[in-house]
Simulated assay, not measured.
Amino acid sequence: MTRTSSAPQHTLTRFGDRPVIYFAGSIRAGRDDVPTYAALIERLSGYGQVTTEHVGDYSLSVKGQARLSDRHIHDRDLRWLRASDIVVAEVTTASLGVGYEIATAVAWRIPVVALYRGEEGTLSAMIAGSPGVRTHRYSDLGEAFTVIDTALADFDGKAES
C-alpha cells in the first residue's frame, strides 16, 4: 500500500534552482515591524530570490506604494506570488493583505511558513488552523532565523517543519 502525503504540494516548483521566496508582511496595517521584516528578508536572501524586498524598506509608509494603483499592486503581487516557490510571512501585525496572500498561496499549493511573536493562541485560527501553513512562534530574531534556516536549508519545493 502506498502512503500519500496530505500536505499541499506546490504546482509550479522548479527543481535545481535557488527558490523564489515571497515575503509577506504588513504595509497598510502598520509599519512598526519594518526592522524585523528587513532582517528576515536579509536572511531569506541568502537562500534565494526574495521578490518582495520592498516590504522591508524603511521608506515605505503605511500608504504603501502610493504612486501605484491598488489594481496594479494587486495584479503585480499575485504574479510574484504565483511565481514563488515558498511564502514566508511575518504575521504578528494582523493584515488583510497578508491573510489574502497566505490564502491564495495555500489554494495554489505554495508552501507557507508563518512567523509570529506573542502568546500562544493569539494567532488567527484561520492561519493557525490551516493545514497549508506551518506556524512558528518566536521571541527574538535568532529564533526566527532558526525557523528560516530549517525551512530553507535543503529546500526541495516543500517547506520543512
Rank of each mutant, 00 (worst) to 15 (best):
S69N: 09
R71T: 10
I73Y: 05
D77A: 00
D77R: 00
R79K: 15
A83C: 03
A83L: 10
D85E: 12
I86D: 03
I86K: 02
V91E: 03
V91D: 00
V91C: 07
T92P: 06
S95A: 04
G97P: 00
V98K: 01
G99R: 09
G99S: 08
Y100M: 07
Y100S: 05
E101S: 02
E101C: 07
I102K: 02
W108V: 01
R109K: 13
P111H: 01
V112T: 03
V113Y: 04
V113F: 00
A114G: 06
L115G: 05
R117G: 08
R117H: 08
R117L: 10
G118I: 06
G118E: 08
E119A: 15
E119W: 05
E120L: 15
E120T: 14
G121W: 08
L123D: 12
S124D: 07
A125T: 15
M126I: 14
M126K: 07
A128H: 14
S130G: 08
S130Y: 10
P131H: 13
G132K: 08
G132F: 11
V133K: 03
V133E: 03
R134V: 15
R134N: 12
R134K: 15
T135S: 14
H136P: 05
R137V: 01
R137C: 08
Y138H: 14
D140E: 15
L141H: 06
L141N: 05
L141W: 08
G142W: 07
